[in-house]
Structures are given as structure tokens and as C-alpha cells.
Amino acid sequence: MLDDRARMEAAKKEKVEQILAEFQLQEEDLKKVMRRMQKEMDRGLRLETHEEASVKMLPTYVRSTPEGSEVGDFLSLDLGGTNFRVMLVKVGEGEEGQWSVKTKHQMYSIPEDAMTGTAEMLFDYISECISDFLDKHQMKHKKLPLGFTFSFPVRHEDIDKGILLNWTKGFKASGAEGNNVVGLLRDAIKRRGDFEMDVVAMVNDTVATMISCYYEDHQCEVGMIVGTGCNACYMEEMQNVELVEGDEGRMCVNTEWGAFGDSGELDEFLLEYDRLVDESSANPGQQLYEKLIGGKYMGELVRLVLLRLVDENLLFHGEASEQLRTRGAFETRFVSQVESDTGDRKQIYNILSTLGLRPSTTDCDIVRRACESVSTRAAHMCSAGLAGVINRMRESRSEDVMRITVGVDGSVYKLHPSFKERFHASVRRLTPSCEITFIESEEGSGRGAALVSAVACKKACMLGQ
């Protein structure tokens, strides 16, 4: 009897593995994704193909990295998701002549009506938060230079001027797309009239992360975010950046690689679950690469896999709870928690219980395998993109072996128990001629924006502006 049951459990697990095998990517698959990513990057950089390229390769006008001589107080704003952060950054000489960066910050959550109302409502709310922060720190009387981390696709015309191309991540505030974001912020500050600010720089969160990590390690020339969304930036040779005049030196390019796949480059790798996630998203047909990796989508992918296993009578005796059938019910943090389970399955059992399920031991094991399959594919897909960037940098610099540091931020990278190990191992397999160091950014977005502002202020002083 026991043997029969054991055989049935083994057969069930084997069927589960057959279904989950769809998520496995072979090294040849990853090399294919990497080569296609490089081709799209090239198209994004070139003037004649930029418009139709899915990977936009947006110039950021960040050319210099901090040298350690900029000092002063800077205000930093960070808008990239449902939370908005205001930070005071003091850049100065530390002990023994070292450079020191001290920060104080406060988080504000953005109400739904500000995210989806008008641009005026959104930026009025942001300036209200700045006003509140300055009151708390008794700094209303000071006109501070301000660095703005704005983590949406922007076409820069200068370091302090950028046109919002399109909202992502659930934002829909009308009247912002096609307009200068810094102008919208300046107008809102003017409307309030109770404080003055000098907006000197606007950067993407990947750029802010790279600059913040450069402060720790001067070989950091790539910034990457794996959180709600997924994106990367890197220092490109100016001669390859056709959208900006000049051939000397390097400029940081914001790849906006989340949109890779929007022209069909990933079609052969998309599964039924991916198509369902895409169809029910706020932007169907867009940001397809990001939807395979980002935390906004990972939990939902797992939920759809679990429903398939229920329908195949391989999980929960073929019956799903009402909660499990509800879109968004299986949160991405559950994926991390399930994979963090120590082996007694308590954590998995508790999560499934909150979803109205009474799982068996085998159910718990199957749910864990589903989570591992989805998150491992995410790590491997992400590795193909980064390997594409790094191999490109090595080739354009004609280096036999390139040493490089990548600064990384984002909740999936930082909080998932195995993502970074799987990701690092896969990147290294795909970049055999590179020695890569990964560092995690601390308060990256805010500190990085302030350091970019410090560079901009120093330049302005040198130019006598």
C-alpha cells in the first residue's frame, strides 16, 4: 500500500517536472537572447534605426563620474514606483581627507489618484512632500541643488532636461508624456511658492545606482535594477552614441532593455503563462523582457503555473481556492519566502493557508518547484541581457580580458534567497573573457542622484555659470 502511494507521488512529481521543464533555458538559448539583445542595442544607438529599435539606448548626458572633490548639501528625489523618497545628502571631506556622503531620508507613498490623475496632481503632491521634508529638517530658507531620480523612459536633451516617452509600472498621470519632466517639477514648486529649489540633474535609477557604486569602486561602469521592473545602464564610447554629437570619451546610456521583445525577438521563448500575464497587464505587448524578470510579474506567473497544475490534477487534489483564482493573489514576496523555507515546509504551508488552501507535504514541495522554475528562468533571462552589455563593452574597448564592476539594486536581487547566485553564475558562463565584480548599492537611487548633481554643480562652477 505504502509502495503504491510512494509510486503515485513519484509519478505525480515526474509529471510536474515535465510541465515545469518549459521554463528551462539551455545555454544556447541564452546565447541567442544575448546576441539578439546586442543587435537591438546597436539599432538603438544608431541614428537611422533608433526610432524602430525596441531597446532605445537613451543617452543620459552623464559623462563624468564623481571624483571626490564636490562638497555641499544636496536634496535628492526618487520616483520610480508607488513609494517616493526625499533625501538630504551631505557631501563633504571625511576623516583623513576621505570623501564622505551622509544621508537623511523619508519615504512617502503615492496615492492612487496622483498616479493615475493628471501630471499637475502628481507633481503638486511631490512638491508637497518636499515642503514637508524641508519643514522637518528646518531647511526651507536654503535654496538647495536638487537631483531627481526618475525611473521611467526619458529622452534627455541635457542633464536637466528630459522628455517622458511613456509611463510604465502602473503610472498613468495624463499630460506628462511628451513633456519635460524637470519643467513639470519646477512648475509645481513655483505653484507652491513656499520654498526654492535648483533642479540641476535628472537621472534614471540605473544611472543613480551606477554612480553610487562608483563611489565604492571606481571600476563600476554598469548599473542595473532588478526590482519591480528590470533595466540597466553602462558607459558607452561616445563615438557609438549617434544621437549625441561628439566622439570623445564616454557617456552613460540608459538601455531601457525592459522593452526588448516588443518587436518579436522573444516570441519563441514566451510561454502561455507569459501571454496571460501580458494580456492582463496595463501595457499589453510592451516591456516583454521586463515581464519575464521583474517583481511586478513574478508572483503572478507562479500563480498561473499553480492553476495549470491544479487543472492537471497534480496539486491540491485538483481544487483551487477562490483566493488562488484571484489575479495578483500570489505576491512576489511569497516566491522569495517559499524558496527561503528551511525544509520543514512550515513557511510554505503558512503562505498557502493564507490563500485558503490546506496543502499536503507533496503540495508544498511542488509549489516550491514552481517558484524555483519561474525565478530561475528570470535570473537566466536577466543574465543574457547583462552578458550582452558586458561583452559589447569588452569588444568596443578591444580588451582581451576586461575587469568590470556592476552596481545592482532592486528588491528581487536583494531579497530573493537564490536569485543573485543563479544570476551571477549564468552571467559568468556567458562572459568567459571578463572578470566581473557585483556590488549592491546602498540607498543607491538617492545618493547617486545627489552625486550626479554634485558633478553638475562642479561643472557649472568651472564653466562660470
Rank of each mutant, 00 (worst) to 15 (best):
M8H: 10
M8G: 08
E9A: 13
A11C: 14
K12M: 15
K15R: 14
V16D: 08
E17D: 12
A21E: 11
A21P: 05
E22T: 15
Q24F: 11
L25I: 10
E27I: 04
E28Q: 09
K32Q: 12
Q38F: 06
L47V: 09
K56Y: 03
V62E: 04
S69Y: 10
D73L: 09
L75E: 06
L77M: 01
G80P: 03
V86C: 02
G92I: 03
E93C: 15
G94E: 12
E96M: 14
S100L: 08
K102A: 10
Q106E: 11
E112C: 09
T116D: 06
T116M: 11
G117W: 03
M121L: 05
Y125Q: 03
S131N: 05
L134N: 01
K142L: 05
L146W: 02
G147K: 02
G147D: 05
F148N: 00
F148T: 03
I159Y: 01
I163F: 06
L164K: 02
W167S: 01
T168A: 02
G170W: 02
K172H: 00
V182M: 03
D187E: 05
D194E: 11
F195Q: 06
N204L: 03
D205G: 00
V207G: 03
A208K: 00
C213D: 00
H218T: 05
E221K: 12
E221M: 10
V222P: 04
G227Y: 00
T228A: 04
Y234N: 01
M235Q: 15
Q239C: 10
Q239A: 12
N240M: 14
V241W: 04
D247Y: 14
R250L: 15
N254W: 03
F260Q: 05
D262S: 12
E265L: 07
E265C: 08
L276A: 13
D278C: 04
A282K: 15
P284Y: 11
Q286C: 13
I293E: 09
M298P: 12
E300D: 13
L301F: 13
L307T: 15
L307W: 13
V310S: 14
L315S: 13
G318N: 05
E319R: 15
Q323Y: 12
G328K: 15
F330P: 00
V335C: 15
Q337A: 14
Q337N: 12
V338L: 10
Q347T: 08
I348T: 13
Y349W: 14
I351Q: 12
D365L: 12
A370Y: 02
C382L: 08
S383K: 04
A384I: 03
R392D: 11
R397F: 09
R397Y: 12
S398F: 10
E399T: 12
D400K: 10
M402V: 08
R403K: 09
V406A: 08
V408H: 05
K414P: 05
L415N: 05
F419T: 05
F423Q: 04
S426F: 07
V427K: 01
E435N: 12
T437C: 12
S441I: 03
E443P: 06
S445Q: 04
G446T: 15
R447G: 07
G448N: 00
A460F: 15
